[in-house]
Design a protein around this nucleic acid. Sequence first.
DNA 1: CTCACATTTGAGTGATTGCTCAAAAGAATC
DNA 2: GATTCTTTTGAGCAATCACTCAAATGTGAG
Lengths: 202, 202
Amino acid sequence: MQRATPYNRDDALKAAQDLFWRKGYHATSLKDLEAALNMKPGSIYAAFKSKHALYLNCLERYFQDAVADLEVRMEAAPSVLDALADYLRAFGKEHLASETPVRVCMLVKTALDATDDEPELRERAQAYLANMRSAFEACFRKAQAQGELSSDHDPAHLAVNLQADITAIRIEAQQTGGAITTSWLANRKAQDVLALRQTPDQ
Amino acid sequence: MQRATPYNRDDALKAAQDLFWRKGYHATSLKDLEAALNMKPGSIYAAFKSKHALYLNCLERYFQDAVADLEVRMEAAPSVLDALADYLRAFGKEHLASETPVRVCMLVKTALDATDDEPELRERAQAYLANMRSAFEACFRKAQAQGELSSDHDPAHLAVNLQADITAIRIEAQQTGGAITTSWLANRKAQDVLALRQTPDQ
DNA sequence: CTCACATTTGAGTGATTGCTCAAAAGAATC
DNA sequence: GATTCTTTTGAGCAATCACTCAAATGTGAG
């Protein structure tokens, strides 16, 4: 009986997240996970307790990555609206083979896929999505504070709209596999964001 | 051994479609189907051959209903753009308990949920979605023919955008269960459609 | 009523599901 | 090197999966 090198928790979570993201909760079997994590069932359960708990762990990881990505983008950009427009356009870009292809947000996919048998999956996904929405709302508030966005607009509403546009672009991206229609759609939605900018002192 | 009354194929398909639509392909077991269709496994397989084939049958049914619904709406409306705007707003309306609640389009859900193990499900769903997109494109062409829409716009692009907006509204509707944010979003996207209308003889 | 046919039945198929646990293997301490 | 502790192993668990088929039951023709 040979022993594998002790598992690396972060590598395992990353692999599990990618697998769950691609196949969804129900279609992913423990056999699949064993292969992806290179771990035997006993090790998986010792480390993550259950398939359910492992999924929740991956979901949280995904969410935190998403929040971090948005924060980095916002800090680096001088203009909020430009940053959001770039954010949208990024989903429309064809990705190289080495990168992760653009897929539907794992939070959205989870919320859609979860059945009444696992209410916790849906609830957590929706909670994370609400959190992301608040982050977008904060972006628009910042744009207002910087005089880039008229105070006539409701940041909460704009956040709803932005999240909807992102979801739509990503669905288009996943289904077409990065065709030109996706980049066109992303550009169009990005223009909608930029059109919010108020012409100064008019 | 008692015998049930012979099954009604259309009723059974309707029940199966609703169940598949709600739970998705993987999460729906034959036990679930037996209960929903009130049929024993043998009868189900005699009538529909397999779970896979039954799902494809339901998907086609769903698609044909969707096409028929759009056609009815377009025939009844004097203005194409008004009809499309109404179409969008309809997804934002809170539905009464007796009606089917607004859910994510079954075609989209199928395309997202399908794994590489069942490529046919994904392919068929995407083919139906492409067909719907063509129908939207035809609507915009009709609007151009009627002078309601400037010929500057590309109907194919507008169709992509419209389909994206519909998907986004329905996702919002399903997740919030028909909250006011959904109707707000639907109204906003409807306004985008109406904004395409060219002011005559300007 | 009798017989031939069509349809439903439901126990049961092998395969797979998520998951467990006693034993084996390495690491750490003395 | 002996002992203790931690971690991995993988055969195997009960339950469920999609699915089958011989027998039971209804239906229609003569």
